[in-house]
């Protein structure tokens, strides 16, 4: 019984971390059809922002929940202005340019912070369930992921901003003809996506620590989740995270953590072969 609860919590935590990892990418990809290969480095930057702020004496929660998203969001806005803006509609070129950006960021952070692991310990202590123990912080992350999904849904469904976003997503030319400014929408979208990514980076930093090259560890998972999810930003990400997170955790419990990751990636590749448009390209097509 206790074991089952722990297993469920682990699955929940794996799903939550996939949601956090990929939600920013999903926003950018879903809205703009831009693949941001520097996504992993945005996460890395968020982690460094949180840890640096914390070491400078900022409260840990403020560092993770405010400083990290703000820093990365501003950086994202800058990148959109300088690079992405010139490449709209050129998907492959965007991928290449953002890859260049990711290399440059790795190089820059290595020069500034050095090629060593920095970390902070996870807050909130631990919780014991029967004979097992688990971190309270991981349960907190499950809550944050759920909250982000619900908040995103509310914004998209009920606000004017959400309406504009959905319109641009469906048919950007028509949305522009009706008086929205696509260039501004894209700029805001990219900044919001980057900020969400920064938040995720900050929140995950206590669990994994940060090194300049940590982006590579995240990026494959984030991509796979977004691409498997398909066109719908929120439900796609949620369903794909649930499926892949469960597969990952169960395989990890049964075998080893490396095989868990391999199983996740293999499952995603098979899924894409069966559903090339992603899960929400086939099912739940009207979802958000």
């Amino acid at each position: 019984m206790d074991y089952a609860i722990i297993l469920l919590l682990q699955i929940g935590s794996a799903i939550a971390s996939l949601v956090l990892l990929s939600i920013g990418l999903a926003v950018i990809f879903g809205m703009m059809r831009v693949i941001n290969l520097a996504h992993g480095e945005f996460l890395m930057l968020g982690g460094y922002a949180a840890i640096t702020a914390y070491n400078k004496g900022v409260n840990l929660w403020i560092a993770m929940l405010v400083v990290a998203p703000l820093t990365v969001g501003l950086f994202g806005a800058l990148v959109e202005r300088l690079v992405i803006r010139h490449l709209y509609g050129r998907l492959i070129d965007t991928m290449l340019a953002t890859w260049g950006l990711s290399l440059a960021m790795i190089g820059f952070v290595t020069v500034v912070f050095g090629n060593t692991v920095s970390g902070i310990s996870a807050p909130l202590g631990s919780l014991s369930i029967g004979g097992y123990r688990t971190g309270r912080y991981e349960i907190f992350l499950i809550g944050v992921a759920a909250l982000l999904l619900v908040a995103g849904w509310l914004v998209l469904r009920y606000t004017r901003l959400g309406l504009i976003a959905r319109g641009t997503m469906q048919n950007s030319a028509m949305a522009a003809a009706l008086g929205t400014n696509p260039s501004a929408v894209y700029a805001v979208t990219f900044a919001v996506g980057a900020a969400l990514t920064g938040l995720a980076g900050g929140l995950l930093a206590p669990l994994s620590g940060v090194v300049p090259t940590i982006g590579a560890a995240y990026i494959a998972k984030a991509f796979i989740t977004v691409i498997s999810g398909g066109a719908a930003i929120l439900s796609g990400t949620a369903i794909a995270s649930a499926l892949l997170g469960a597969i990952n955790t169960i395989t990890t419990f049964a075998f080893t953590s490396v095989l868990g990751e391999v199983a996740l990636l293999v499952a995603a590749v098979v899924l894409l072969r069966l559903l090339p448009q992603g899960i929400t390209g086939r099912f739940f097509r009207r979802a958000l």
């Binding site: 260049g100 790795i106 190089g107």
Partner: peptide, 19 residues
């Protein structure tokens, strides 16, 4: 020249060439 990191230079070169 300690600021010269191969990744940094390669990355910037790639962005510049694509743009």
């Amino acid at each position: 020249f300690a600021w010269v990191d191969p990744n940094l230079v390669l990355g910037v070169l790639l962005v510049v060439f694509v743009l």
